[in-house]
């Protein structure tokens, strides 16, 4: 049998597949799907009450965006932290693959689930509320906002998982819910450093804030979070 050393990207792809397979059989996926029902139920409730309006659409999108504070910690932070805390990282670290591929592989394997769940929820909400509440453009912006916001929130969750693996989920939820979301809601320039503000702006609910600055903010948060997570993973013993 011939063995080779996987390139970093081959290892990343292999780890992404492995993470996806594990997530598909774990409890985190079911929790994610259950949480994603909440905005849909909100939309259904207003449809039944025949109180459909653009405000309800905004409410459904805001409620869905709250999932960004929970789903990335449940999926991404727990996956990385469990690897470290349960010591299964030993199986990966002792193999011929770069450590950065562990962070990136998990990130790329799990972020699609983290994006898909709220995206489906907001799409169903759109269908339920109908054209009286939002246009197709509104839906596209909401989907883009959820995708980019989830990516940034997942990078932050990955960073927190490597910094404090024992309290990764709680730490990531606290950060995203108690720091990122409130600061993002402040009418101060400080809000540009939050994923919640970036996502809200991309969705079209950011007031006068520029879309370009929101996109840059989300990109910087993603890159910074991943860079710190990778740096930390390379040093953990």
């Amino acid at each position: 049998m011939t063995t080779t050393t996987l390139t970093g990207w081959q290892a990343t792809a292999a780890l992404a597949r492995l993470s996806l397979k594990r997530a598909a059989r774990g409890k985190a996926l079911w929790v994610t799907l259950a949480l994603s029902l909440v905005p849909t139920l909100y939309a259904i409730a207003f449809r039944i009450a025949d109180r459909v309006s653009p405000d309800r659409w905004e409410g459904a999108v805001m409620m869905t965006s709250l999932l960004l504070t929970v789903i990335p910690p449940i999926l991404v932070a727990s996956s990385i932290a469990d690897e470290i805390d349960d010591k299964t990282s030993a199986y990966l670290w002792s193999r011929a693959l770069p450590r950065w591929s562990i962070v990136l592989g998990k990130f790329l394997g799990l972020v699609p689930i983290a994006i898909a769940a709220p995206a489906v929820a907001v799409t169903i909400s759109f269908a339920v509320l109908g054209s009286a509440a939002a246009s197709l453009t509104d839906l596209e912006r909401a989907l883009a906002a959820l995708a980019l916001g989830t990516i940034a929130a997942s990078a932050i969750a990955a960073m927190i998982a490597t910094l404090m693996p024992r309290f990764a989920v709680a730490g990531a939820v606290c950060w995203l819910l108690l720091i990122d979301a409130p600061v993002g809601a402040l009418d101060l320039n400080l809000h540009v450093i939050t994923a919640s503000f970036g996502a809200r702006t991309v969705a079209g609910f950011g007031g006068d804030a520029s879309l370009a600055s929101a996109l840059i903010s989300l990109a910087v948060l993603t890159a910074g979070g991943l860079a710190i997570a990778i740096r930390r993973m390379e040093r953990i013993e």
């Binding site: 292999a14 492995l18 594990r22 193999r95």
Partner: peptide, 24 residues
């Protein structure tokens, strides 16, 4: 320690780890 990837079957676990170790 005995912790592994419990969600996987034995075959899946060993296959994944063999590939990560360099087996095509």
């Amino acid at each position: 320690h005995e912790t592994t990837y419990d969600e996987l079957t034995g075959r899946e676990l060993v296959t994944a780890l063999a590939h990560l170790a360099g087996v095509p």
